[in-house]
């Protein structure tokens, strides 16, 4: 994956973000293209956040929860 891509990942605090945290604990790596925003729950994600990300030039948006 090219480092020029920008992927905004909205991660639920309890699962996806906890998973990313655990990945860190286990010394696992992920590509720098992924930029994580912690949200308290995937239910917190307002569609306007996603639009905003695309508007600001994100190549992809990942909603994980």
């Amino acid at each position: 994956m090219s480092v020029n891509t920008k992927i905004v990942a909205f991660c639920c605090n309890w699962c996806a973000y906890a998973g990313a945290d655990l990945a860190g604990l286990n010394r696992m790596q992920y590509p720098p293209d992924v930029r994580i925003i912690r949200v308290p729950c995937s239910g917190r994600i307002n569609p306007q956040f996603v639009f905003k990300a695309f508007q600001k030039g994100a190549d992809g948006v990942l909603v994980a929860g």
Binding site: K6, R35, R44, Q48, F49, A53, K56, G57, A58
Partner: peptide
């Protein structure tokens, strides 16, 4: 959150 999106992009 919108500010975070701004900053990360």
């Amino acid at each position: 959150i919108l500010a975070e999106v701004d900053a990360l992009c």
